[in-house]
Amino acid sequence: MDKLPIINAQNLSIGYSKKQALIENLTAQIYPGEFIAILGPNGAGKTTLLKTFLGALAPLQGSLKLLNHLPHQDCIGIGYMPQQILRPELLHLTGRTLLGATIQAHQWGLPYLNAEQESEIKLALAKVEATDFADKAFGECSGGQQRRIMLAQALLGQPKILLLDEPLANLDFRHQEKFIEILTRLSRDQSVTILMTTHDINLVANAMTRVIYLAKGKGILGDFAKIFTSEKLSELYQTPMEVVQHQHRFFVVHKETGQIENVCCEHV
């Protein structure tokens, strides 16, 4: 098995302006086939980190390599699923049409799919079990079905890395489970590396390999068991934190205020 990291970040600082970095000095090596959850309170820089990995945002400092390239030089190797995709103009198109638009976006000329592209779309839809509703208008699909179509979109071009922004948000439990099952299969069977932001660590606790936890302008990467300790999180937050376990669910609580951090449940 490949022992070289597929994502290699050294002393990485990220953010939208040089004056104010959102995260400083992040060092992380991620290996092929890993399934990583990116956690942190609102505004900690989860989406910003994904966008930096994607190449849509330049690092402020430090070095970053994906698939041994600088970000943005190997876009084909990265699949991305953004958080907000619902624009009313899109709702009348079918999932298959959206995938068709994606697969030929790099070509010139008028939209027309060749047989090879048609079969790749078919394959991507099958991988996420979206074949049944691929020809329904996007707006008539349920939230969970829409997410699966967008995941199929991210899978076009057989990327080695998947960057998913809040794919589980606002889904009911059944759809969340289904989605995680599909992701687990992708990372296990095809050794796709998955990085996913989420507000509920408990949903993916069994599926993921490691966690990136972002807070207070810092980020740490490590095993779930090592990071989800009162000691480690207090150090990261620079304030007393407590990790509480209740009925197999983990909660992160501010010790002084008793407030629950929204890294362990969807609706806080």
């Binding site: 994607l54 876009c75 990265i78 976006a105 000329g109 008028l110 939209p111």
Partner: peptide
């Protein structure tokens, strides 16, 4: 338009992805 229809259509539908895919 006929020449640029494919990338134009895609970036009209999913602008944030057009940027991400390096169009």
């Amino acid at each position: 338009i006929a020449l640029i229809a494919r990338p134009l259509w895609f970036s009209a539908l999913l602008p944030e992805l057009a940027l991400a895919r390096g169009l």
